[in-house]
């Protein structure tokens, strides 16, 4: 068995292979691999004795799950209400332009993934962009370009 599935098994066993723990198990798998591949989903379904329609229902319902690989650098723009009234849409436009990505897209070289999030709880900084956990308050187009350059 591959390393990947052994890791998935380890996660599933951690929850006693309980059907009810499905969401918790998927969260851990997502955390481990940054996405949920078809292979891991099939394996999880078989281990828990759940049909695939249920797994796809769950994984496409909750926003945190990703069915495609995510970029090495996670870029999020907060579109919570506080950031929105302070101009989050303009910031999102600038970031989109700078990364040449639409929200929820990953670049072809898997370098960046752009996401929007609803409130990061640092409304005082708003509008906020977060790159790999680093917070930036309302960067201009030039500042965004610098960040894009700096990322490997």
């Amino acid at each position: 068995m591959s390393y990947l599935l052994a890791k998935v098994d380890q996660i599933i066993d951690g929850y006693g292979a309980e059907k009810e723990a499905l969401v918790q198990i998927l969260l851990d798998i997502q955390h481990e691999f940054r996405w949920l591949s078809r292979e891991t989903l099939l394996h999880t379904a078989a281990r828990l004795g759940l049909p695939m329609n249920h797994l796809y229902n769950v994984t496409t319902f909750y926003k945190h799950f990703s069915l495609v690989p995510q970029g090495r650098h996670a870029v999020s723009v907060c579109v919570g209400t506080a950031c929105h009234v302070r101009g989050a849409m303009r910031l999102l436009d600038r970031v989109s332009q700078g990364l040449r990505l639409s929200p929820d897209e990953t670049s072809a070289d898997e370098k960046f993934s752009l996401k929007t999030v609803s409130c990061l709880g640092c409304c005082a900084l708003g509008p906020v962009m977060v790159v790999d956990g680093k917070y930036m308050s309302n960067p201009t187009s030039n500042e965004i370009a610098v960040i894009v350059e700096e990322c490997e």
């Binding site: 309980e18 059907k19 009810e20 723990a21 499905l22 969401v23 998927l26 969260l27 319902f61 909750y62 926003k63 945190h64 799950f65 609803s118």
Partner: peptide
């Protein structure tokens, strides 16, 4: 919770707890 605003609704939250 894996990211669903509607899961804050009581019956939806309880469905989520049931997996």
């Amino acid at each position: 919770g894996a990211g669903a605003f509607v899961s804050g609704e009581s019956s939806a939250l309880m469905s989520s707890i049931e997996g």
